[in-house]
Design a protein around this nucleic acid. Sequence first.
DNA 1: AATGAATGAGTTTTCATTCAT
DNA 2: TATGAATGAAAACTCATTCAT
Lengths: 208, 208, 208, 208
Amino acid sequence: MAGAGGQSSSGVRDARRRQIREAAVRVFAERGYHATRVSDIAAEAGVAHGLVYHYFASKEDLLREVFRRSWSHLVVGLEDIRQGPGSATDRLARVVRLMLGSYRMAPELVRVLVLEVTRSANLRHEVEEIRTGFATIEALIRDGQEAGELRRDVSPELASYITWGAIDEVITAWVLGTLPTTDEEMSAAERAIVAVVGAGLAEPAART
Amino acid sequence: MAGAGGQSSSGVRDARRRQIREAAVRVFAERGYHATRVSDIAAEAGVAHGLVYHYFASKEDLLREVFRRSWSHLVVGLEDIRQGPGSATDRLARVVRLMLGSYRMAPELVRVLVLEVTRSANLRHEVEEIRTGFATIEALIRDGQEAGELRRDVSPELASYITWGAIDEVITAWVLGTLPTTDEEMSAAERAIVAVVGAGLAEPAART
Amino acid sequence: MAGAGGQSSSGVRDARRRQIREAAVRVFAERGYHATRVSDIAAEAGVAHGLVYHYFASKEDLLREVFRRSWSHLVVGLEDIRQGPGSATDRLARVVRLMLGSYRMAPELVRVLVLEVTRSANLRHEVEEIRTGFATIEALIRDGQEAGELRRDVSPELASYITWGAIDEVITAWVLGTLPTTDEEMSAAERAIVAVVGAGLAEPAART
Amino acid sequence: MAGAGGQSSSGVRDARRRQIREAAVRVFAERGYHATRVSDIAAEAGVAHGLVYHYFASKEDLLREVFRRSWSHLVVGLEDIRQGPGSATDRLARVVRLMLGSYRMAPELVRVLVLEVTRSANLRHEVEEIRTGFATIEALIRDGQEAGELRRDVSPELASYITWGAIDEVITAWVLGTLPTTDEEMSAAERAIVAVVGAGLAEPAART
DNA sequence: AATGAATGAGTTTTCATTCAT
DNA sequence: TATGAATGAAAACTCATTCAT
């Protein structure tokens, strides 16, 4: 009984944490981190605002948690792609698809990641974690260079920033509404990034 | 004589405005817009905080002013490049140089533009103005496509976001300290962006 | 039980609101609305100043609330008198007694009403509500005229302003300390107003 | 020359004082004393706000000055009436006419006197001076009682407050716009006050 | 005398966080 | 676990007053 109780209450605990976390994502996305009040999050989650502090140490901790949860998910996906099959160009294309796809799946979450975490000066530590994502792309590009598929006159590090920047800018444009987000347009954006970055990083001899 | 007097007192006013604006840039860059107190700006400028309100209506107004001043400068530079001589690829290279160079000239200012204004949800109206910069790059790319220099299978609009994203990401990395900012490294970054975006947007037949 | 709980917690809320409202009355009366700081009110109520904003939207809102609460009480009393028995002169006397009596009961409150609300240009909307009180007196006087008890050569509207003015001036004098407020003196003032206004408004034929 | 110069500059000084004082009256009337900024007054007068402090010690001093200037004018008028010819009732009528007439002449000024000075808790000293006005009316009424014209069962002091209150309330209503201010209506109000207060204070035997 | 830039004390208001229940 | 009342630090902003020119 204690065990079951423990489990079930642990499950309840997790459900509550999740409920609050997801409410936070929506409100952060809507109003921005700084303009969001803890009571807004609580109201969105349908709980008393004091309860937020049972589950999270602070407002910043909540943002951090939102970030970690989703970011680690992305990082795993990127690592899978890097270790997976296909040419470097194919795998880069898959990276673009993963990143842009995550916006399609959870635009509000991505909005928070893009507008709040990535650019926040306070979340230096988290920004470090973002580097993990870059590092995976960087490794993927280095692999491609060593395999003779990708040009070697550009450092893998810089190449990863350029790739990431292209993706990030498009997502930001979707988030801010400066690029349309119909399925058609989103697919076109995906193809455009793949085409430009693919050609831009390809070994000259290998360019189509 | 009255005219001269008017000018000189106007000059004093302008000098003060500028003094406060430049102090604001430094403090915004150092601590971020939200974490900056008006009294920090006043202290940095060496004036009483009340004086800030003599010259600017509010803290947000100050940020807006900082943005407009510097942004319009950049926009003019971009437009000059677009209308200037050279192949589309040459002019794209000049765009990259202008943007990255502005960071070299005034890293704190660019930091504010990049981290605060560009991503701020409150400054929607200003974000609109940012589009002007994109539009110029877009026009430059369209010109290149029509001249047969640049590939036509990517819309000029998306191409401009990709280009901008590559530039923006590198500047952000400089600002956040995740990429080194020695002269050597900054030049390497410039060459990398020019190389990758240039090749990525080039008409296949024209690729070297 | 839930109901009782709801009631009691609502009762706690109401008690706090009341506690703060009554503290506000005392401090407004003591220092005047403009010179009163929200923190003064909080201190008088023995709570943190932030709590004031838990219960009232702003300092002005608090004044408005004080006004509405007490004014509506007076208006009800006036209306009761108007509809009650007795000659018009008797009922006018009762009106005087009600108004002056309210000062005896809650001099601080009346002081706020008289010095702050009634004369404030900002509370125009509330000044509208004050007209309701006048209107009741006006109706009472009109009734008296139609019954042949009161003179008809003075409009009921002007007569109500004159009556009200006599009452208001005496209360103001009490508030400002320019007339003594011993029981004896207050009764004398009441008799004086009743006598003068009564005779002044009486139908000539009916004058004693 | 020195003498002439002194005179003329003294005349200039007086003109400036007057210019600022009259501007202050208009702005106080428009926005109320507390809500009026010194710079508003300066702007209304068309001078720099620093200049206000060359002529007046403080904002409160300015209000005090406005009050004294006009109040002493009224007090002189009241005293003239008291010492003048006619029955007590006639002279009371003249008092009403003087007071109401002053509103016709300078409504903004009267508005300041009525809404700001008379009711201000800060201007205790000035409120004392107001008593002078009451005292004159009180003396006039006492004279009438001693001459057997006015009833003796009401103290002259209370009678003066009642008279004053009737006048004050009507002026306040004009100021706040709750009574119409056409010539016709203003004359009707004057007649009403004279009729009611006159009959109310008359010796019973003498009532018409 | 005149200007208006400069000062800074003072006030309202917000909101993250704590805590009694 | 859950509530929401209570706290108080912190920050933007105002404006009377001073003062250099």
